[in-house]
């Protein structure tokens, strides 16, 4: 796992490939194209790239109009502004008419780091998940991001893709096949399971390794599609273990942990511990230090697994 790549970088590269493959793909940004990595698409396909300036509401509304006229727009900005500033445009101009807009947001979560809590979306998945017609995707690494972007372009309908600023370990090789709505079981175990997404998948695998040395057998599932949730896989994995831990770089309210809790409560109740932000905003700091401060590390997943296992009947 030596190799690292930020999901936003993978996004920028995926857009270039997509631009060559599909002339209907257009990209919009709101003056953050160097950070969201859409700038390279803009250089290569200037006629299909629209910098909308610092105007997120119009960014999303314009994307909706392009989609209504048959284009496949990818609209990018930071996750805070995409889902916050432009929420109602996403709701009424994109999700309600089920238009083919891809909201490809970067700089999600506390790993934004130094810019601080104003710029760290910890609620975006909850907001997007609550919208009818919306698909919500959170890639774990660059490989998955590339596949996700291609899958989102092929799918006809609104998609929210949540990407990060930070370099994260490459978990998948090119043989991996992402499918919307399909969770990926990375490791099978009998004692407990971690269901994670985004930057939390790598520490989930490390946590499983650590506990394996103690003889505990831990499943790890990458739930990169938060909606539609792969309830079948989640329930099947849950049936084979005694306890579950969810792990996300997001508020524990409304995101992946909530989605899993809902699925388990309805289909297969068992002890669940949620690793995530405990209903607090982030702050300035180095990403790694923030992950430690807010309890989003391998150690926190291990502790949650122990707690969940102790609740096992």
């Amino acid at each position: 796992m030596a190799e690292k790549e930020a999901t936003r970088n993978a996004y920028g590269r995926a857009l270039l490939a997509l631009g060559a493959e599909n002339p209907d793909v257009v990209v919009l940004d709101a003056d953050l194209s160097k950070s969201t990595k859409t700038a390279d698409f803009g250089k290569k396909y200037p006629e299909r790239f629209f910098n909308m300036g610092i105007a997120e509401q119009n960014l999303i509304g314009t994307a909706a109009g392009l989609a209504a006229a048959g284009k496949i727009p990818f609209a990018s900005t930071f996750a805070v502004f995409a889902t916050g500033r432009a929420f109602e445009q996403i709701r009424n101009s994109v999700a309600y008419p089920k238009l083919n807009v891809k909201i490809a947001a970067t700089h999600a979560g506390i790993t934004v780091g130094e810019d601080g809590g104003s710029h760290q979306a910890v609620e975006d998945v909850a907001i997007m998940r609550a919208l009818p017609n919306m698909t919500v995707l959170v890639p774990a690494d660059g490989t998955e991001t590339r596949q996700m972007i291609l899958a989102a372009a092929r799918y006809d309908g609104p998609v929210y893709i949540r990407m990060g600023r930070l370099d994260v370990p490459v978990l998948y090789d090119d043989s991996y096949r992402f499918q919307i709505g399909r969770a990926n079981v990375l490791r099978r175990g009998r004692d407990a399971a971690v269901m994670a997404n985004g930057v939390m998948v790598a520490p989930a695998l490390e946590a499983a390794e650590e506990l394996a040395r103690e003889g505990l057998d831990i499943s790890v599932v990458n739930v990169s599609t938060v909606k539609p949730l792969d309830v079948d896989t989640i329930v099947r994995v849950a049936q084979g273990v005694g306890a579950i831990v969810s792990a996300e770089e997001h508020n524990v309210i409304g995101g992946l942990g909530s989605a899993i809790a809902e699925a388990l409560a309805e289909h297969h109740p068992l002890p669940l511990e949620r690793v995530g932000l405990k209903d607090v905003f982030g702050e300035s700091g180095r990403p790694q230090e923030l992950l430690e401060k807010f309890g989003l590390t391998r150690k926190d997943i291990v502790a949650a697994l122990r707690k969940a296992l102790s609740r096992k009947h």
Binding site: N58, I60, T62, A64, G65, L66, A67, A69, S93
Partner: peptide
Amino acid sequence: VDMSTGSLGQGLSAANGMALAGKLD
């Protein structure tokens, strides 16, 4: 009906998108 509307302020953005698509095509 070419665009779902009702929440005020959003129609011109959508119209811009349609006009941009027309120019592109």
